[in-house]
Amino acid sequence: MPKLIKQGLTALLLAVLPVLPAHAGVCATDDTGQQVCLPAPAQRIAGLSPGASELLWSAGAGDQVVAVVAWSDYPPEAKTVASVGSHTRLDLEKLISLQPDLVIAWVTGNPQEQIQTIRNLGLPVFSIEPRDFEDVSSVIERLATLAGTEAEGWAEAERFRTGMAELAARYSDRAPVPVFYQVWDEPLMTVNNQHLIGKVIALCGGYNVFGELPRLVPRISDEAVLEANPEAILAGGMGEENRAWLDRWQNYSSLDATRVGNLFFVPPSLIQRPTPRMLQGSELFCQKLEIARGRR
């Protein structure tokens, strides 16, 4: 009798097994706290911000990306993928016709109405908003889960995590350097301590002279910079290797940074997007501050 039951159960199991999917469903929680579940790993993914596309490639899901937006320029392969408008003004028609099975949205960058429309049309939307270094790794891991590329993605996430930790260990306790980071030229804008770049400053043992300002990207005056008198000024600029933004500070000989020559250019693409390239950007950033320390 027990044998019979055992045989019956086996037969039942064998009968049921083929019905179960070979690959079970995948789930991940996005940065708005919503759980997104897919019946199978996504094969056609749309990235609705340049950062989202870059993170998708980092997660090893580059081959599955079918739609990006304007300015998705990294990695270079991203430029060959169909564009669906700009992140502020999406061409929904184009997006829908590409038939994505997963849409990666940017919480504060995409128009909420359009994202809601995409949801209403039944497409799964995964919203991201990396606010610190750990978020970058975590987003990569979750994207890798949804795309079924865990091996590659998790490794990349871990590489970034340990890389940033090493930088922190090496630099964050060095003698503080008062730093002004110029994120835009006209109007003159900087970042506070909550901003990712603000966190890079802290990571490298810098002291952000405007870190306590309440707004994430404060608009400031030349006067405020002169008063704060930073020891080093770091700036992005339009395009890579363009030092034009630093020239404005050459006129102020009263600035310590100008007098000592601590006016540094950091390629904006390496530091202004919350992606693994930040590791390279942060390393560069920390090196500049080391140069500043060396000139004391």
């Binding site: 502020t88 003004r89 999406l90 960058g109 128009p111 109405e113 359009q114 707004r215 994430l216 990207v217």
Partner: peptide, 23 residues
């Protein structure tokens, strides 16, 4: 002038008039 940078694009597009949000 006082709004956070990340909200600016949406605001500017609203001011220019846009049908892509219309239901």
């Amino acid at each position: 002038a006082i709004s956070p940078a990340e909200r600016l694009p949406g605001m500017l597009y609203w001011l220019m008039g846009d049908l892509s949000y219309a239901g």
